[in-house]
Amino acid sequence: MEILQKQLIITGATGMVGEGVLHEAIQSPFVSQILVINRKPCGVTHPKVKEYLLPDFLKPEEMRDAIKGYDACLFCLGVSSVGMKPDEYKQKTYDLTLGFAKVLHDENPNMSFSYISGAGTDSTEQGRLAWARVKGKTENDLSKLGFGDYYSFRPAMIQPTPGLKNALAFYKYINWLFPILKLFVPNSACTLQELGYAMLEASIFGSPVKTVEGKDILAFAKQMRARL
């Protein structure tokens, strides 16, 4: 039986989440080609992988010729709001993401777009936490662009994939929490492999669940494992 294969765009591969998602996409039999879009080289060489360097993600129109014909985008680029002024956080979260997505939609309107958001995101855009409002507005406006399919992923704690190089330094100090969370609050934590599997499941096979919370990430990952 012929295997369904998709061509993916992945952003953020020089960060922990993007690197982990790229790692799973490379190994997936359901992925035939990957275009990695980064500001700087990610250092990954593989027959499936092409790389396009976009020095300024606030000028995404420069990438138009490179992005034609892809089936899905896994948008894993993001910044922490810690120590960042509200206007700067909005620019690097909302403005950057929406600008990038609009260019993608212009060239590939039927593609699937998956966005890494975060647990606690405020879909009402009215809550007390500024970062949660910005993430909520980003999710809401992405969903209105008219992609063929759209998903917001909201992971909480993520356990890095062993052997990868871009895990955030503080994870080595909090990794001991992971088995405790899995035992007592299982939906509040996932492995980076599970998140990668979940994003691949949604982008390749689709789901009626569009806002993907912790429990959904685990369920999607289980579905993908069963396919492998």
Rank of each mutant, 00 (worst) to 15 (best):
V17H: 12
R128Y: 02
A167M: 11
S114Q: 01
P208R: 02
Y115V: 00
L164Q: 06
E19W: 14
N187L: 10
G83N: 06
G196K: 04
K50A: 08
I217R: 01
A25Y: 12
D122E: 05
I158T: 04
Y150T: 05
S188A: 15
L77Y: 06
L164Y: 13
F100M: 03
E62F: 14
M111A: 13
T11L: 05
S143E: 11
I116A: 00
V36S: 15
C76M: 03
E19S: 14
E125N: 08
C190N: 12
Y173T: 12
A169I: 00
G69S: 11
R133P: 12
L129G: 07
K172A: 08
Q33N: 13
T121I: 06
P160N: 07
F153W: 12
Y70D: 02
I67M: 06
A156Q: 08
Q126H: 08
R133K: 12
M224H: 11
P208F: 01
F178N: 04
A119T: 01
G148C: 06
Y89C: 02
I26M: 11
Y115C: 00
S152T: 15
L22P: 01
H23L: 00
P208N: 05
C42M: 13
I3T: 13
Q33L: 08
E61Q: 14
F113G: 05
S203T: 15
I37S: 11
P160G: 04
E139P: 06
M1K: 09
P41S: 10
P60Q: 05
K102F: 14
T14I: 03
P160F: 08
V209A: 06
A72L: 07
E19H: 14
E61R: 15
T121N: 03
K50Q: 09
E88D: 12
S114L: 05
S32I: 05
V212T: 07
L53V: 01
M16H: 13
L8A: 12
I37H: 15
Q7I: 02
F205E: 10
K85W: 09
K135I: 01
F75L: 02
V82K: 03
G69C: 09
D106W: 07
S152I: 07
Y52Q: 10
N38P: 04
V49N: 06
L74K: 05
K92M: 13
A119F: 10
K222T: 15
K182W: 15
A219S: 14
K68G: 05
G18R: 11
Y150C: 12
G20C: 14
V103I: 15
G78M: 01
A189W: 03
R225C: 08
S203I: 12
H23N: 04
L98K: 04
P179W: 14
V185A: 15
R227Q: 15
H46L: 06
L129S: 14
A101L: 04
G20P: 03
M199S: 09
I180T: 09
K6C: 04
H46F: 04
I9E: 00
L129Q: 11
C76F: 14
L77E: 03
V134G: 01
A189C: 09
T161R: 13
T45L: 12
N140Q: 08
